[in-house]
Deep mutational scan, measured.
Amino acid sequence: AIERGSKVKILRKESYWYGDVGTVASIDKSGIIYPVIVRFNKVNYNGFSGSAGGLNTNNFAEHELEVV
């Protein structure tokens, strides 16, 4: 089962992080479509409006993740 702290591989082909491994930061139990927040070591794009980097978290559905 996917739980907080799990290392997961991203299976969503259109994702910037496809094939990468991230760490589960949290799981939303409220029934939303993409409840699993995954944190990565790298950012997906340069930040804007003065922020240092881009996003390094993204929401995924459990079926888009594979525990490694």
Rank of each mutant, 00 (worst) to 15 (best):
K7I: 11
S26Y: 11
F60T: 00
T23I: 14
S26L: 08
V8N: 01
K29F: 13
L65G: 00
I27A: 01
N56K: 05
Y45A: 15
G19Y: 06
P35A: 11
G19E: 07
S30F: 06
I32Q: 12
Y18T: 02
S49M: 15
G19M: 11
R12I: 11
N44M: 12
I10S: 02
G47N: 09
A25W: 08
F48Y: 08
E3K: 10
H63Q: 06
V24A: 01
T57Q: 09
V36T: 00
F40I: 07
Y16C: 13
I37G: 04
K9R: 11
E3I: 10
I2H: 03
A61R: 02
I27S: 01
S6F: 09
L11Q: 05
V43F: 14
S51E: 14
A25G: 04
Y34M: 11
D20E: 12
A61E: 05
F48D: 15
R4T: 12
T57N: 05
N59H: 08
K9C: 14
E66S: 05
S26I: 08
L11N: 04
K42R: 09
E14R: 04
E14D: 12
V38D: 02
N44F: 14
V36F: 14
E62I: 12
G53D: 14
T23D: 04
E3T: 11
E66I: 07
F48A: 15
F40P: 03
H63W: 13
I37P: 00
A61I: 02
K13C: 14
K9Q: 04
K9L: 07
S30Q: 07
N46A: 04
G31N: 14
G31K: 09
I2S: 02
G5D: 04
G50R: 02
L11P: 03
E62P: 10
I32Y: 07
G31D: 14
N59T: 07
F60M: 00
K13H: 07
S6E: 04
G5S: 03
K29Q: 09
G5Q: 02
N59W: 08
T23R: 04
S15I: 04
K42P: 11
S49V: 14
V38L: 00
G19K: 04
R12N: 07
F60N: 00
H63G: 05
V24D: 00
V68K: 03
F60P: 01
I10D: 03
A52N: 12
V21T: 07
K13Q: 12
G47Q: 06
I32L: 12
I27T: 03
S51P: 13
I27M: 06
A61M: 07
Y18M: 02
P35M: 11
N59V: 07
R4G: 06
S6C: 14
E3C: 15
V21R: 02
S6V: 11
D20M: 09
Y34A: 09
S51F: 06
S15R: 00
Y34R: 11
E64R: 01
D20I: 13
F40K: 03
S15L: 02
G5T: 02
R4H: 08
V38R: 00
Y45T: 15
V38A: 00
V8S: 01
N56G: 05
A52I: 12
G54A: 08
E64Q: 01
V21K: 00
N58D: 15
A1T: 12
E3R: 12
R39P: 00
V24I: 05
W17C: 06
L55F: 12
E64G: 00
Y16V: 07
G54E: 09
L55D: 10
N59A: 13
G22P: 01
E14A: 06
L55Y: 12
T23M: 07
A1S: 08
I2L: 08
I2C: 14
G5E: 03
E3Q: 13
F60Y: 09
V43T: 11
G53Q: 11
R39A: 09
N56L: 08
T23S: 03
I2E: 01
G47M: 03
N44D: 15
I32G: 11
V67I: 11
E62V: 10
Y18E: 03
D28K: 05
F60W: 01
R4L: 14
L55H: 08
G50P: 13
K7V: 11
L65T: 01
W17H: 04
S49P: 13
V38W: 00
V43A: 07
K7G: 02
D20C: 14
H63Y: 10
G31A: 10
F48H: 14
Y34P: 06
A52P: 11
A52T: 11
Y16T: 04
E14F: 05
I37S: 10
N41E: 14
A61G: 09
E62T: 10
F40G: 04
Y34Q: 08
N59S: 09
V43D: 15
G19I: 13
E62W: 12
R4P: 14
W17E: 00
N41R: 08
G54C: 15
I27V: 09
A1Q: 12
Y16D: 06
E3N: 09
D20P: 01
Y16L: 05
K42A: 06
N59C: 15
L11Y: 01
E14C: 15
E62G: 05
N56Y: 12
S51W: 04
E64L: 03
V43H: 12
Y16I: 06
H63A: 07
P35C: 14
V8C: 14
G22S: 03
N58W: 13
D28C: 13
G22F: 06
S26P: 00
R39V: 14
V8P: 01
I33R: 12
Y45H: 15
N41V: 11
N46W: 10
T57K: 06
N41T: 12
Y18V: 03
S15H: 03
G47A: 04
V38F: 00
N56C: 15
V68G: 01
A52C: 15
S30C: 12
Y16F: 14
F60H: 01
A52D: 15
K29V: 13
Y16A: 05
A52G: 13
S15A: 02
E64D: 03
V43E: 15
H63R: 06
A61H: 03
I2D: 00
L65N: 01
F40N: 03
R12H: 04
Y16R: 03
A25C: 15
G22A: 04
V43I: 13
D20A: 11
N56E: 10
I33C: 14
E14P: 05
V36K: 00
G5Y: 03
I33Q: 14
S6H: 09
V21G: 02
S49K: 06
S30K: 08
Y34I: 02
V67Q: 05
G31R: 07
K13E: 10
I33S: 12
R12G: 02
R4V: 14
S51M: 11
E62L: 12
V21I: 13
I33N: 12
S49E: 15
S6R: 05
G22N: 01
Y45N: 15
W17M: 02
G31Q: 13
V43L: 07
N59E: 08
Y16P: 07
T23G: 01
V67G: 01
V67S: 04
I33D: 11
A1M: 12
A52Q: 12
A61N: 05
V21Y: 07
G19T: 04
Y34S: 08
N56P: 05
F60E: 00
Y18H: 04
G50H: 10
G50C: 15
S26Q: 10
V8Q: 01
V68A: 05
G5P: 02
V67E: 04
V36Q: 00
A61C: 12
